[in-house]
Simulated assay, not measured.
Amino acid sequence: MTEHVLSGTRGAIAVHGWSPPRPRCLALVVHGYGEHAGRYGELADVLTGHGAAVFAPDHMGHGRSAGERVAIEDFEDVVTDLHAVARLARAAHPRLPLVVIGHSMGGLIAARYAQRYGDTLAALVLSGPVIGGWELPGRLLAHEEIPAVPVSPAALSRDPAVGAAYAADELVWHGPMKRPTLEAFVRTLETVTEGGDIGTLPLLWLHGDDDRLVPLPGSRTGVERLSGGAATERIYPGARHEVFHETNRGEVFADVTRFLDSVLTA
């Protein structure tokens, strides 16, 4: 793994990189709320083993990047930062096709990225994406003071080791959500809803059917609107929010690499 530092829209952005000797494509991995890109080392290993050079930023206010913890006032800035990471990837490996893989909040960022820069992409992968109907921000904003309800580690995966590692990770935010970030979620959900579909760009949607953080039905409406009803979907029985860290992650990884093969062959 290599590490890079970019000048982002609101401060320094830490970027993790993994690369095989002769990559055949580029993959941007876009992490979720409160976590960081370092949690996706296993996914990166699978992707590099399949020929992808992987670049994964810590978003502003997350991980090793600058900014007040988990404070995002405008997700358009995060999308712009992600585009800077794409330029970094293309400078290192020119002319390779680019795939964006976004999880949870990262799915919202990736969806908006595809709306803004879809003509530069070969494919989009969304895992438990925060798009469509997600009620949590509205419920929390209704309170005068945001309730201090952190993410439950048990909601992430059926693998208890995943929850234990998450709870012990000092780079993960374990405090309450912040009002400006919740307000930015609401605005960006509306922006993606109104932003139109992504045309013929291939889209793979992954979701656990026991996802209690980002319930499947709400995401479905967003995915169908974004893809124009043409997404490839994989719904995993019993799986919780983080399918890349689930007990059946071997199946999930195989679905991703199979999808990438179909896109790259086409």
Rank of each mutant, 00 (worst) to 15 (best):
R87T: 15
P137L: 07
H83C: 00
L126S: 07
A89P: 01
A110M: 05
T120G: 14
L96P: 04
A91H: 13
M105I: 00
D119E: 14
A92M: 10
R116K: 14
P97H: 08
L96D: 01
A86M: 13
R112W: 09
A114L: 10
G118Q: 12
L96E: 03
G132D: 02
A86W: 06
H103N: 13
R112G: 09
D119L: 11
L141S: 09
A91M: 07
Q115G: 11
M105C: 06
L141Y: 08
A92P: 02
L121H: 07
S104A: 11
L82D: 13
A86K: 04
I131T: 03
T120K: 13
P94L: 11
D119N: 15
T120D: 15
A89R: 01
P97Q: 06
L141E: 08
A111R: 01
G138W: 12
G132M: 05
S127V: 07
Y113M: 10
A91T: 14
G138H: 13
A110D: 05
L121Y: 13
L108A: 04
S104T: 00
S127N: 10
W134P: 00
P97S: 11
L140M: 13
A92E: 15
A111H: 00
L136G: 04
A122M: 08
G118I: 12
L98R: 01
D81G: 04
L98E: 05
S104P: 07
G107V: 03
I131S: 03
A89G: 02
L121D: 13
G138F: 13
L124K: 07
P137K: 05
H103P: 00
R95D: 15
Y117T: 09
E135M: 10
T120R: 13
R95V: 07
R87M: 08
S104W: 02
A84E: 11
A86P: 04
V99P: 04
L96H: 01
Y117C: 14
R139Y: 13
A110G: 08
L141F: 10
Q115C: 11
R139L: 15
A142K: 14
I109V: 15
A114V: 12
V78K: 04
M105R: 04
A84W: 03
P97M: 05
L121F: 11
G128S: 14
L141N: 09
T120L: 15
P129G: 02
G138E: 14
I109T: 09
L108V: 00
V130C: 05
G118T: 13
A123Y: 10
G132Y: 05
L88C: 01
L136Q: 13
A92T: 07
R116H: 14
A84I: 00
M105N: 02
L141K: 08
D81F: 04
G133T: 13
Y117Q: 12
H103G: 01
V79C: 09
D81I: 00
L88D: 00
G107S: 03
A84C: 05
A91L: 11
L82I: 03
G132K: 02
D77F: 07
P129C: 03
A142Y: 10
Y113L: 04
P97R: 07
A110E: 09
E135I: 11
L140C: 08
L108C: 03
M105V: 01
G106P: 01
I101S: 04
G133L: 14
